[in-house]
């Protein structure tokens, strides 16, 4: 241990990254096998990869949490972590951007072209005569059959209110943490992932309803594809965010965070706000308009 004031901090070597790389590889390898119907190798590899990844997350994050509590990390390291999280969230924004882009392009350009607008006239005339477009649509061949959309002012509205309030609860918890008020922080912090899970539960019910009563499925043409992929990836992120929030709640309960030092808490809170903002985009562009 060479403790040198003003020196840079460099962490020691770690076995976790290579475990993560191997776990990720086995996970993806298994997923590819499974998709190609190679069983039982596919599911087994996938499960093994997932197990390694879970083991890795506990190990790696545990080590970082212990190092952080030992006071090994300087303010400079803290800032590197913050930048890392910010740019990670930016990359997530761009990922959703691809699917939002697909939605806007289909609605704004390709469906009107298929319906004969603009320079799509000949396609419509020769291939899809009589197709009038509009939105929602499952295309000229009505793939997936007649379907109805999820009305926005029922469960989606409730879900919007749930996510918005969860953003409020996590912010109250954060303020309580900064005031050093643990008794006030914990209930608000625990309330946040509970609201998140409630959101996922209602979303799952909405999916069941769409499949059983509305005939709205993943196969329902371009509408079904964009609807389920956007809301599905968002739901996945809410699930992940909820798990992250449970971990943070556990760490807060164990007293890992101080008034000044609680980067993990803030990173998860940022992530949660990001998930919230994506939902507002979804609610507006997928459900309402």
């Amino acid at each position: 241990m060479s403790q040198q004031a003003g020196a840079y901090y460099v962490p020691h070597g770690s076995r976790w990254p290579i475990i993560a790389a191997v776990g990720l590889f086995i996970f993806m390898w298994g997923a590819a096998h499974w998709l190609d119907g190679i069983e039982p190798e596919g599911p087994l590899l996938l499960a093994a990869g997932a197990a390694i990844l879970i083991f890795m997350f506990f190990g790696w994050f545990g080590e970082v949490a212990r190092e952080s509590m030992k006071g090994l990390y300087s303010d400079q390291v803290d800032l590197s972590f913050r930048m890392g999280m910010m740019w990670f969230i930016f990359s997530e924004v761009m990922f959703f951007g691809a699917f939002f882009g697909a939605l806007f392009y289909s609605r704004g350009l390709q469906v009107p072209w298929l319906a004969g607008e603009g320079h799509g006239a000949l396609t419509n005339l020769y291939l899809f005569r009589g197709y009038t477009g509009g939105w929602p649509t499952n295309g000229p061949d009505a793939i997936g059959g007649v379907f109805q959309t999820v009305p926005p002012w029922g469960e989606p509205l409730i879900n919007t209110l749930i996510l918005l309030s969860s953003s409020v609860t996590v912010t109250i918890a954060h303020h309580a943490l900064r005031d050093g008020n643990r008794r006030r922080m914990l209930p608000w912090l625990v309330a946040t992932p509970i609201l998140g899970m409630l959101f996922v539960f209602l979303q799952a019910r909405e999916y069941m309803d769409a499949y059983t009563h509305l005939n709205l499925t993943l196969h329902s043409g371009i509408y079904g594809a964009t609807f389920f992929m956007l809301t599905g990836f968002h739901g996945l992120h809410v699930t992940l965010g909820s798990i992250m929030l449970w971990v943070i709640a556990y760490r807060a309960w164990r007293g890992h965070f101080s008034k000044e030092h609680h980067f993990a808490f803030e990173a998860v809170a940022w992530y949660w706000h990001f998930v919230d903002i994506v939902w507002l985009g979804l609610f507006l562009f997928v459900y309402i308009i």
């Binding site: 998709l35 990359s91 997530e92 761009m94 990922f95 951007g97 691809a98 699917f99 882009g101 697909a102 392009y105 289909s106 390709q110 469906v111 072209w113 298929l114 396609t123 291939l127 899809f128 649509t137 499952n138 295309g139 000229p140 061949d141 793939i143 997936g144 993943l218 196969h219 043409g221 371009i222 509408y223 079904g224 594809a225 964009t226 389920f228 992929m229």
Partner: peptide
């Protein structure tokens, strides 16, 4: 991430029956 999104759409079109790139389903 945008490339990841594009190839994910290929994956779902092939394995999960979405219609991102199928004109008959309103895709392109």
């Amino acid at each position: 991430p945008v490339l990841a999104g594009a190839v994910t759409m290929l994956l779902t079109d092939k394995y999960f029956g979405t219609n991102f790139f199928n004109a008959a389903g309103g895709g392109d």
